[in-house]
Amino acid sequence: MLDFIQQLVSGIALGCVYGLIALGFVLIYKATEVVNFAQGDLMMLGGFFVFTFIGLMGLDYWLGFLFAVCAMAVFGMATERILIRPILGYPQFSIVMATIGLGYFLRSVAGMIWGTDDLKIETPFSTGVLKLGDLVIAHDKLSVIVATVILCAVLYAFFNYTRMGTAMRATSENMLAAYYMGIPVKRVVSLIWAISAAVAATAGVLLAPITFIHSNVGLALGLKAFPAAVLGGFGSIPGALIGGLIIGVIETLAGFYLPQGWKDVAPYVVLLIVLLVRPHGLFGPSMRKKV
């Protein structure tokens, strides 16, 4: 039984990692209905930024964290301006391909700049564990869980209770109508890319002690976080967290109880089954199609 609970806890920790990245997917989708396949690579870039600030320039951890998040927010805005804005409004598949191209590009360039070795930084969470009776949780994983829950709550409140959040939801509903209502659509879109890149940077910094900083880390985690976002229903912020948790728990438990090989496939099998039953994910809207 203790085994099971311990596995469950580490599954939840892993799930929060996926949830944190999935949050970035969901944010951009929620405001602009664009799917950003480069989300994992933005996270990777955030990790490299924080390595540059802390590891190379010797800044304090929290200061480096702040700088990396701000730098990534600017980077996200620039990406939106250069790559996304000209093709916004064209078929979704071409935007998806553009972000896949961006991911390719960022991965290779990061590998060329920072090298292909695993890098790591000293963080306050790198060592130390929390003991609850017989349960053991490492501090680095705990930091991810706490950060994911806080970010989810903050962003949920932002989308539902602020003027800007409402404007973002309106933009995603119907861009032209939003223009007519006086919503600064361009600023909304560029802001959401900044927020999403900042969330990705947060994920990159918090994951630095767990997965290390490497140019391919984004692809691997992004491909797992993507099903999490889909499972939760792409436009739902709590859905991202819950989808992440489901994927994380299933993956960990499958790795523990099922024969070898199931660990990597189980999340996708569950995803396919869920999509067959509920084509818009667990928390997605199930509206009728209108002509």
Binding site: G101, F105, R107
Partner: peptide, 18 residues
């Protein structure tokens, strides 16, 4: 450099779409 091919692939995709 090792990653050049990937970078060029990425650039080609983005340039064609844009």
């Amino acid at each position: 450099a090792a990653g050049l091919k990937g970078a060029i692939y990425g650039l080609i995709i983005m340039m064609f779409i844009l």
